[in-house]
Amino acid sequence: MGSEEIKGSKTFVEIVLPYVVYIGKRILSLIPVFLIISVIIFALINMIPGDPVMSMVNPDVISTMTPEQVSEYVETMRSFLGYDKPIIQRYFIWMRDTVFRGQFGYSIRFNKPVNEIIGGYIGRSFKVNIFGFVIAFMISIPIGIAAAVKKNKLFDKVVTVLTIVGISLPSFFLALILIMIFVILLGLLPFSGMSDPRGVIPDWHYLVLPVTVIVISSLVGLVRYIRASMIEVLQADYIRTARAKGLKEKVVIYKHAFQNALIPVVTLIGFTIPALFGGSIVVERIFAYPGMGYLLGQAYGFKDGAVLQTSLLFFGMLTLLSNIFIDVGYMIVDPRIREGRTK
């Protein structure tokens, strides 16, 4: 960190350029992984037995048709959805449409092109997840540090037990308990949804409970990780040196120890973000919050290939990109890695 202050003469471009080059290289190396992921997604989803067209066929709709018409309808829908082509051809069509045309196919569940719907769901998911994650992060840092500093003291033990309570209950259950307390008993918040159709309750009220569940369920991992990482760093020789120099305990902890403890925590951010999005299938269902989790849940019921493929590809890319994000994060926090990579 201090090295930049010394070499103050570096221009902005000189500082940023190595990162840009590095990111560029990493993105290029993503291409084969992206292709592998896309093949796996496509193969897996098409291995699911059953004809997706059948979930479009509604007994109410077809009950007035002759068998010939039903056959014709099923065939029409099949070609409308592109299911009449051989599977390998379908993969290439999908890749072509997704990568070059930006068209993600047609949703069976929503009876619309995927492009029209998916943006809204991704956006809403980002809103709760990022919000929740930032709060969790902000809370977990002081708690994790305090627990590490006071290792094996009462505070640490209380935190340990509380974090265990936090992960002992599945998040769907936590969601229902929160509803029971804050909605039914205290009447402070609305049950579920995104906004009040009557326009009475402000929108952010609807975010409180889903965000709380996300905070609680990601807090545990963060606190434990920060604590463990801090404990390790606090035992390092340079900390002893710093203490020996007679630095204030606060300076030792926040300046010397925490910055180094941050490195493994950066890894955790990268892992947690995709996990958050995926884990919300159940929570979003209970809060009737129409995000990616809700969309996935709906898509499974209907064997909605286009939506499944698009959202899994989205999750895959999100993870890969967050891996790059981790590495760049490493570069920023750890000068040794920075030197190694930008060379």
Partner: peptide
Amino acid sequence: IIVRYVPSETELDQLLQGE
């Protein structure tokens, strides 16, 4: 009239609470 989506897990409580 507002027709809104309610999850089956909580719909009854939403009715009892007047939501």
